[in-house]
Amino acid sequence: MTHLADLPVWAAIPVALLLLLGASLALIGSIGFVRLRSFYERVHAPTLGTTMGIGSVLLASMLCFTVLQSRPALHEILIAVFMIVTTPITLMLLARAALYRDRSEGSDDVPSAPPAQTTAPSAPDAAPPV
């Protein structure tokens, strides 16, 4: 734990605050995950952790290593860019999969499939469920 003693006060306090902010956001997102009632409500909860939560942890990490190594530590940007690109994709895929499954079971809670033959421009073979 000696390296943390080298961190000056003006850097240590933002690092601590950012870490706590990120961890709290991730925790609140996961609490929402337990508390919210339906799948379509729960799908909103992880976005707290994947946007600002991981963003503040990455900022804390960048600040800490930039000060400790006295040169810019930028490779945390990679994880940030990666998260920005991938999170919408996974959540959208999951929401569409859930919608597809609910529709094919004839659930009343979801809007019915559009009458036209396409559900998505990228997948012309995606016939709406009967």
């Binding site: 976005t47 946007t51 569409r96």
Partner: peptide, 18 residues
């Protein structure tokens, strides 16, 4: 789609190109 889904509270579910 990315903007709407990345914003907490809204999620893009489906696009109808017709």
């Amino acid at each position: 789609a990315c903007i709407i889904t990345a914003t907490p509270g809204t999620i893009w579910v489906e696009y109808n190109s017709a």
